[in-house]
Amino acid sequence: MATSERSERPVNPSGGAAGRAAPPRKGSGRLPWMLVLPAVLGLAFLVLPLAGLLIRAPWPTLLQRLAEPQVLEALRLSLFCATVATALCLVFGVPLAWLLARVSFPGRRLMRALVTVPLVLPPVVGGVALLLVLGRRGLVGQWLESTFGVTLPFTTAGVIVAEAFVAMPFLVISVEGALRGADQRYEEAAATLGASRWTVFRRVTLPLIMPGVVAGAVLCWARALGEFGATITFAGNFPGTTRTMPLAVYLALETEPEAAIVLSLVLLAVSVIILASLRDRWVTTP
């Protein structure tokens, strides 16, 4: 390694001394292979499984499989639940991120750690935990049923709750990071102009951290869309009400691996299309 570095040095414009005139270059010379090589390997690692799905897809029967009403039903349910779950996460997660980033109170560190629990918890365990709290014999679920006659398990609302539980940390962490990175002096400037804390948040903080909120919401949505373990454990699996695409994929794997590939591709294609078109709407924001 040492030799190759030495032999290459004169080519590098910053090396200077050599008589050969190196053409002027923008930036600081060659791309560092120490970064490029792992980057390319990492990309391959992420993308090759996708290629595997594409290669093994049963293309001749693809359209016919897609037209099956159960596929569309599961897809519609998946998109609906992931979107509502993301909306829920935004409503509760953004204020939570604000609290963690901007208000100091005892136990804040602990709370920040607790927020990430759903990230490390195996989703199936998360589902069981949700049942223990929100199930019909659960701490809160019991009360929900006796007071409002509402039961969450085995309902579409249950799917949304499970997805929100698992996906919310992605939003909170992303938004909290954006809040910590945002220059708080803008908020001070707004306060000197007579803005209340709520106005400051709405008209200054939120626009400033919008890229972080959007990135967090996208992560959150994608995570919710792919949610399997907590959903099947908490909300069960029934066509039309709780069988989302990942559940359909898993069950298809039991009998028809080809169908599972088709379903996975549909899920991927739809999410990529939606995210790409969303992007255009956000391009204009600073």
């Binding site: 992605f170 949610e227 990942p246 898993y250």
Partner: peptide, 11 residues
């Protein structure tokens, strides 16, 4: 996207 989907199915 792929990361989140992968996490989901890891369940």
């Amino acid at each position: 996207l792929p990361v989140a989907l992968a996490l989901g199915l890891s369940g």
